[in-house]
Design a protein around this nucleic acid. Structure first.
Length: 283
DNA sequence: AGTGTATCCTGCAGGC
DNA sequence: TGCCTGCAGGATACAC
């Protein structure tokens, strides 16, 4: 559920509130959420301070340590329905119906990881392990490293259809199902077109489309359709700006056509058949 | 290498 | 009201 804009919004909220806090106690409610053995997970985080909070793709990355020296990296992947919430000292929040883990902080508040479907994953690693994991992901689409040339080169190496290609985190980090459809619509590229078959003009438009859609969604605090909430518990407002996602059967915002839905790799892709001409190949 | 399918899980909407 | 099916912002593991 949360893609780059949603995770970025959550990270911004976390940074204003829990930077520098010490983790006094770690309580694991649902062990199946851990990608790290429970003992090592609890041990490596307990007693440390939050030195930094950042985002890598769709992951929230906490640097944990002391005296400015990170001894552990705590990574939260929210999966489809994960949330990070804060509860004030001594208070229980009615929002917390499916707690997965609790982190009691030095100021008396508690950071709660909440996840209904439990597709999320909590990982504690060393800084070295974290670096090699991060290197396995594709470029950050809003960074200066993500140039038109980088995108073109990566697309050229793949015969897969461009919508599933965009969802693969090793290609571009942070794009998910909503923004893949939205970026392709803006670029006028059909979701079933092969990555390597994109023409130069299409690649240029896709590059701009990805960056524009993600930037605008960050400005709106992300897209809330169901579960997603900011760290403050608010909804993101980008759902109003969606042009094709979840709009099958409705009129295209740009032409007289009608938005269609197709399943690719088990995920729904939405597109306008007029604005995004189908590739020649039958299928 | 790429694709299709299944899996992990819960909740909700819609049809009957 | 209940039961059933299908669907959901993700990621992985497997067989072809």
């Amino acid at each position: 559920m949360p893609e780059l804009p949603e995770v970025e919004t959550i990270v911004q909220g976390l940074r204003t509130t829990i930077m520098g806090q010490t983790i006094l106690k770690v309580e694991v409610v649902r062990e199946d959420l851990l990608a790290t053995p429970r003992g090592a997970f609890v041990r490596s985080l307990t007693g440390g301070s939050v030195l930094d909070i950042a985002r890598r793709g769709k992951n929230i990355v906490f640097s944990i340590g002391a005296n400015g020296d990170a001894s552990a990296i705590f990574v939260v992947n929210l999966g489809m329905s994960g949330r990070l919430l804060r509860t004030e000292s001594g208070r229980t929040s009615a929002l917390v119906t499916h707690p997965g883990a609790r982190f009691r902080l030095g100021d008396g508040s508690t950071l709660v990881y909440h996840d209904i479907r439990r597709f999320g994953r909590l990982t504690a690693t060393t800084p070295e392990e974290h670096e090699s994991w991060s290197a396995s992901l594709g470029p950050e689409p809003l960074s200066s490293h993500f140039t038109r040339g980088v995108l073109a080169e990566a697309l050229r190496r793949s015969a897969s259809k461009v919508h599933p290609w965009l969802l693969h985190q090793g290609n571009v980090a942070g794009v998910g199902n909503i923004y893949a459809s939205e970026a392709l619509f803006r670029a006028g590229v059909h979701p079933q077109k092969r990555a390597r078959d994109l023409e130069a003009a299409e690649t240029r438009r896709l590059h701009r489309g990805i960056r524009a859609v993600l930037t605008e969604a960050v400005e709106r605090g992300g897209t809330t359709l169901r579960d997603y909430r900011t760290f403050e518990g608010e909804e993101g407002s980008y759902a109003h700006e969606l042009r094709v996602y979840a709009r099958a059967g409705q009129p295209c915002t740009r032409c007289a056509g009608q938005v269609e839905r197709v399943v690719l790799g088990g995920r729904s892709a939405f597109f306008c058949p007029e604005c995004q001409p189908p590739p020649d190949e039958a299928s």
